[in-house]
Nucleic acid binder design. Structure first.
Length: 221
DNA sequence: ATTATGATGCTCT
DNA sequence: GAGCATCATAATT
């Protein structure tokens, strides 16, 4: 019998998604932030061919005090006002880059984690380690070499690619991480059962029907 | 296992 | 000067 030792994690194989997945277009991204955040779970994100399957997202709405767009356009957040499908990149805590895809009406979806699938060796090299390659927004950006120079680019065009999922995933929801305002909104979404999450989704964050928006979350009290 | 803390740069008050 | 949509390391149960 085994001791309590945890088994080393097998590294992910290359391209299971294959070339058959449809590439998402700007029109696919023109959704309210809460819907887009769910729509992107299971989608493959690549930057110059390096990336994997999105496993965790967070939605930030226009009328959401936790959102960078809440107080209107500024130099930093101008990409959030560039229309759905734009890339919004900002620096976090002075050290890390965070990658967002802009949703409808100056909302955005923070891509918080993905399952490495393509270019894993390069991701390891950039991260300087073999595990925890893209679980967490700062780690993800480092692994994909995303930085401020990508701000304002089109998420559906080179160097980026979004390849659609082939099946509707089961999605968990929970409170967003690292914010102090609007803590009550369960706008963090994760692929059910995935180990590629920055943190587990707390129990009680019940599964929701994949990609079905809940209107009651969309309006402010 | 969980909690604390320092690093670091930019935007807005 | 305050406050971050964070992460890695160290200290502590």
């Amino acid at each position: 019998m085994k001791t309590g030792q945890k088994a080393p994690l097998p590294e992910p194989p290359d391209p299971p998604e294959g070339p058959s997945a449809r590439r998402l277009l700007t029109g696919d991204l023109d959704l309210p932030a809460v819907e887009l955040a769910q729509r992107l779970i299971g989608v493959m994100l690549l930057c110059e061919g390096v990336g994997g399957v999105i496993s965790e997202t967070e939605a930030y709405g226009r009328d959401d005090a936790a959102s960078h767009s809440f107080r209107g356009p500024t130099l930093r957040n101008r990409s959030m006002f560039a229309g759905a499908g734009a890339v919004y990149v900002y620096r976090s805590y002075g050290l890390h880059w965070c990658f967002n895809i802009v949703a409808r009406d100056a909302g955005a979806v923070l891509i918080r984690a993905l399952e490495p699938r393509s270019g894993v060796d390069l991701m390891r090299q950039r991260r300087g380690r073999t595990d925890h390659l893209a679980t967490g927004p700062g780690r993800l950006a480092q692994a994909l070499a995303i930085n401020i120079r990508h701000d304002g680019h089109d998420a559906t065009a080179e160097p980026f690619a979004l390849l659609d999922r082939l099946q509707e995933p089961d999605i968990l929801m929970g409170p967003r991480i690292g914010i102090n305002r609007e803590r009550d909104r369960p706008w963090r979404f994760g692929l059910k059962g995935s180990r590629w999450l920055s943190r587990p989704i707390p129990a009680g964050g019940e599964p929701i029907a994949a990609s079905v928006p809940r209107k009651e979350w969309e309006s402010l009290p």
